[in-house]
Structures are given as C-alpha cells and as structure tokens.
Amino acid sequence: MEDLVLQTVSLLASTVRLAVPLILCALAGLFAERSGVVDIGLEGKMLAGAFAAASVAFWLQSAWAGLAAAMLVSIAFALVHGFACITHRGNQVVAGMALNVLAVGLTAVLAFAWFQEGGKTPALADAARFRPLQLPFAAEIGAVPVIGTIYVRLLSGHNALVYLTAALVPVVAFVVFRTRFGLRLRAVGENPHAVDTAGISVARLRYEAMLASGALCGIAGAYLSTAQSAAFLREMTAGKGFLALAALIFGKWMPIPTLFACLIFAFADALQGRLQGVELPGIGEVPVQALQALPYLLTLLLLAGFVGKANAPRASGIPYSKEK
C-alpha cells in the first residue's frame, strides 16, 4: 500500500516538474494569442531564455540574475516578433518560425564561442541554480502515513519557480477576466476595430501582450536550464513550446483549462519516463523511441478528437489595419 502511494506520488511529482515549462509557455501564448498574435515563437523565446539564464547564472553565480537575464532576452525576442508583425504587419507564423530558427542557431553559436563545450554551457554549481525548497514542518508531517508522503514528496521539495508558476495561473486568470487590461486584451483578439473605435491603441495593447509573453517564456527557459537541469544544452526545449501551444488550444485559450491540458501532457511525459526499460505484461519492453513519442501522439489524438470546436480568438493571426 505505502509502496503504491509512493509510486503514484513520485509519478505525480515528476508530472508537476515537467508541467512547469509547459504551463509558463502556454500562459505566454495565452497573452499573445488573446491579443491577436499567433505565437508560434514560444519555443524560440524559451530556448533563448534558457541559454541566457544558464550563461548569466554561470558568470554571476546567481540563479536570480540568470532568471532576470532570461526574461530580458526572451522579451527582446518577443519585441522583434512584435516589430515584424504588429508594426509592419508581417505574417505572424513566418515571423515566429524565423525566431525559432534564429534561437536554435544563435544559442548554439554563442555557446560554442563563449564556453567551448560543444554547444552547452558549463555545469552550474548548486548555488547558481534553483534548488528544491522544503515547506515548513516537512519533517513532522512526513511521519504521518500517506498524507506525509504526499506533503513531503508532492507538495514540498520543489524549487521556487514551481511555486511561482502555481501562483501565476490564478493571477493570469484574474488579470484576463477581472481587469481593464484583460478586458481590452480579450477584445483586441476578437475585434480590433472595436478596440480602435473605443479609443484604445491596438498596436500598444498587442505590444503589451508580447511583453507578457516574453517575460513568461523567459521564466520557462530559466526553469529548464537552471532549475530542472544544471546547464544549457543545445535545443533543450525539444518541442515543448509547440506542446504548450497545443495545450493552449486544448484549453480553449482559458487559463485554468490550459493548466489541466499542460498537466495531462506532462503526465504522459512522466509516464513514458517511468515505463522506459519496464517489462509490460503481455507486450514486453517497449522501445524507448516509441515511449518518447507518447506525449506527442497524445497531443495529436486530443487535438484531433476531443477538443471539439476550438474557437480561437477571431482576429488571431490577422495583422490589424484600419481598412477592413
């Protein structure tokens, strides 16, 4: 019994750890897409953020400095995206894809040039990373069966960015649905003409959304390279930005449902990690590659079958101009 609880709890705990970058990126995408900018560049912004975090954390031996750098770099990427497709009304998908390609190449080249470690950054000391935190009374509660296991292994023992992410979800939900900025954000992605005639600048609003998107992607990147790992690795985002985009669609551009979509994808990822090398009854050992494809197969299945009609923000993907 206690063993089963332990197994389940550790599977869920790794689900939480894997979900964090997805959630941050999906919330980033939520701001961008609610404002009418299709954000296929989540992946690139996160990757650039991861590299910036690992580099600065290494130089300054501070995880928080790395986080700040990641957010700044990722915001810079978001502003380039905005400049291309808000100011100059370029194609949002092409611009976002260009950022992704740029991030892959630039991070690798700079890593080679600065650190000469074959495209990765030097391993970070614990002091330069986000380390697990123990919640209060972990030792006392840990003695209680079941509840203690859950408290110590699932709720406690994560790094600061995990708790930050958990706090950000309700904050984003509040901002989107209960504030002036949120009202305008939701409106500009649906009908920018209505926003313009209400005396609000469409471009400014979309830039603000891109700032939020950049900041959140930066946190996701810092999480990957300074919390989950202890260095930047080439292409370490591995499609998580796209997975987050899928979760956003599955969550119908709403914060709470998107959170659950991210958790489902992360659970699939955690599960495939557990199943590697395990003999399954009746099937035998499943090849690692097939297992690793699990989250992506799940994405396809969910988006094709269960999402129903995804009502994207109506003006999403369309550059705004006053003439219809």
């Binding site: 209960r178 939701r186 209505a194 926003v195 209400a198 005396g199 609000i200 009502n311």
Partner: peptide, 25 residues
C-alpha cells in the same frame, strides 16, 4: 458594421475603453 466584440456581453462592450479603473468590478 457594428464595432462590437461578438463574444462579449453587452456590459463588457459598453465598458471597453471606459472601464473606470484598472479593476473591472
């Protein structure tokens, strides 16, 4: 062509641009 946000309520449409503060309540 009406300048209304179709999936907003009437109240939200009226408020848009005249929200009267950073919080909507």
């Amino acid at each position: 062509h009406f300048m209304l946000v179709e999936n907003f309520t009437v109240l939200e449409n009226v408020l848009l641009g005249a929200e009267g503060g950073a919080l909507l309540k």
